[in-house]
Each structure stands twice: as structure tokens, then as C-alpha cells.
Amino acid sequence: MTLLNHRTEGPASAPPLLLGPSLGTSYALWDKVAPELSITHRVVRWDLPGHGGSAAGLIEAGATVGDLADLVLALADSLGVERFAYAGVSLGGAVGLHLAVHRPERLSSLAVICSSAHFNGAKPWEERAALVRREGLAGLAEGADARWFTPGFTVPELVRDHRDADPDAYAACCDALAAFDLRDRLSEIAVPTLLVAGREDPATPPAHLREIADAVPDSTLVELPGASHLAPAQCPEAVLTALRAHFGGPAGRGMEVRREVLGDTHVDRAQSKQTPFTARFQDFISRYAWGEIWTDPTLSRRERSMITLTALVAHGHYDELAMHVRATRRGGLTPEEIGAVLLQTAVYCGVPAANSAFATAQRVLAEEDGTAG
């Protein structure tokens, strides 16, 4: 059987996550998001029939979203993937909704991005399908930027994908959108569901995502300021943050551990100071330091705290040392134990470093509970 063209990234043993594209694009839509997701998931992104590298013959006139969903399941089966998380944009999101209603046993969680439970009725899509079958895609591709992005923004590779798509396959995808309407089945969706809307999206405005969120039990809606229809390409960091929080992994667990060790006050203060410039660094800290290192059960948190104190003394990071002295007190270390760790550093890191460390720790302990050690 001919399969959808796809790209697989990430560890084979990681939880599988399938990513679906929008009409007129290829899996390049996920270029700025998939590599980061593949740190914690086995990411499989696929091309629609006649788009990217997928064969046009995989779809015929009169196709349905259910037909596309069957192709996705065939791809998953070929990869040995029984149950998977799924995220899709526009038509790709519709495929996810179909799977959640008709094949819920295959989904562990769902994210629907800039999509809808219906696409404004059949007529516009029937007209577009007829136009493409008659004239091809060149003229339609010229207006892609206006439909996909806010003014002044473009992704040339995606516009080229639109122009190069097979017209008959594209028109068949339009047929699928024309026939799609799951509004009366949304309440049946039981998998954890995230809805992501672009506030500047003219194709599937936020109201479409709110409609789904209102109907799907316990779903979550996120609206992205400044994002239009292809949010993963235009606002990848915001989409990545939403998907990480929804699908779990080190980022979500990392923030939890960070709060447990450092305390809500410190973390809230750090988060309040976050800017677009520092957002990626804060995410890095949550994912790697707190989400992967501090959650490793090989060492206890007490042991990690002691190692951290030593490393900070060795490099002279006394502001960070003060923060972690507070953290070790929260974690149960006594002033005597903290003093013993710092005394150890005098031997291996040098007396001057230990002297400064003792002064920092004494100040923090006095501030915390009046104990000077």
C-alpha cells in the first residue's frame, strides 16, 4: 500500500506524536516546531495527498476527511504506532477531530490548531475545487499570504508548496472540507483536547475554536495574539509552548519541580520578568535543568542540592548560591548540613571561595530563620 509521505524525528522509544498540515502546505509547516517537540516525542509529520512528497493518487474526487484519517491510521500502523498524540492545522486539525470522534482508541491526546468543526458550509469549497480543476493552482497561490499570514509576513517555502501541489488532489481535499461538519458530535470527544486559535486568522477565526471548546468536555482554549492561519510557521514559540504544556514531557514536569524546589515566590518573580527575548531561555531551564536533570531518580533531591551548592561555590556564582541555599532549606537540609557541604568546598574549591560562600549562606540563613549555622 502506498503511504503518505512523512518525516520521523526523535527517539523511537519516545511517545509518538503525529502532526498534520493545512491545505496547500507540506510538512514544512512544522519546521520550526517539530525539532523541538522531537526532544521528548517520536514526531511523525505527514503530507496531504498531492502535497509535498505524497502521491496524488491517494485521494480522489468526492473524498472525505474520514478518507484522510484512514490514510493517517495506515501510516501509523506501518510505523508500529498503535496509540498516539495528534496535532493538526486547519484540514489537519479536522482529521484530528474526526479521529477523536470515530477512532478515540487510537488517540492519547489532541491539539486542534487554527481549524474548525465545520468550514463555513460546502459552497465556497465546491467553488474553489471547481476553480482549481479548471485553472490550476497558480492564481490561488498568489493570494496565499493574505489567507495564511498577517500583512508583511510570509514563508516562501510554503507558498511554493501551495503552487506545486497537484490540482486534482488539492480539489479533492476541498471536497473533503466541503463535506465536513462534526458540530453535533463534539460532545463525544473524550481525549484531552487543546484548541489553539490565531486572533488574526481570517480563515478559521477564534469563534470557530471557541465553538469546539464549548462543546468538548474539559478542553482548553489558547488564543495567540498576532497569529494568523498558519500559526506554527508564524508564531512557532507560542505554539510550541502550548503544545508542550498540553502533551506533557519535561517542560510541564520541569515547571512543577522548579516550583517545588525554589518556591512559588521565586518562580513567579522570574516569570513576571520574562520577555520575548528571555522566553526561550526560561523554557530551556524548565525543560533541561528542571524537566530532565532534576527529575532523574538516580540521585535524590537532597543529593542534587548538595552537588549544586558545591558547583556554584566552585564557579563563584554567589547570587545563585543564595537562591539554592534557600532551596536546600525548603528541601530539608539543616544549617549544619549546609555548613558541612561548604566546608568540603574549602578543600576542593579553595578557602577564598568557601569564605565567600559561608558569608552568603550565613546571610541567607539569618534572613530565613535567624540561624547563622
Rank of each mutant, 00 (worst) to 15 (best):
R330E: 01
R7I: 07
L131H: 10
L99P: 02
S300V: 03
H6A: 04
A207W: 00
L137Y: 03
D184R: 15
R106K: 14
G248K: 13
A111F: 01
T360H: 08
T275V: 03
G373C: 10
C174D: 00
R128W: 02
A238Y: 12
D214Y: 03
E260H: 13
L17A: 03
G139A: 15
G88E: 03
E367Y: 11
L48V: 01
V72S: 07
A361T: 15
A169Q: 00
W125Q: 02
D296P: 03
S356C: 09
L23S: 05
R133F: 02
G331Y: 09
V351T: 08
G93A: 02
P49V: 00
Y348H: 10
E320P: 02
V101K: 07
F281L: 11
A327S: 08
F358L: 06
A117L: 01
V351L: 10
T328F: 11
L91Q: 05
T328E: 10
L4Y: 07
G339R: 14
L131Y: 08
G350S: 06
L18G: 04
G62T: 01
E188W: 06
L309S: 15
A314Y: 07
C174W: 00
A76G: 09
V191P: 02
Q282S: 03
D47Y: 05
D283P: 01
A361V: 13
L243C: 04
T25K: 14
E211D: 09
E188Q: 12
V191M: 12
D283K: 14
A179L: 12
G52F: 04
E36L: 15
G248S: 09
A111N: 01
A346S: 13
I59K: 08
T241L: 15
D166N: 13
L240I: 04
S116D: 00
I307E: 09
T308H: 12
Y170S: 00
R160F: 08
Y288M: 11
G198I: 06
L75S: 05
G136K: 00
W46L: 04
E292C: 10
R269E: 12
V81C: 07
Q362M: 12
E303D: 13
L312G: 05
R269D: 12
V261N: 07
V44P: 03
L58S: 03
A117P: 01
A215I: 02
L37A: 01
P217K: 08
D161F: 09
F277M: 09
R185S: 10
W290R: 04
T334P: 06
R163E: 04
P11C: 09
A314Q: 14
T295A: 13
F247L: 05
V65Q: 04
R42H: 05
S305M: 11
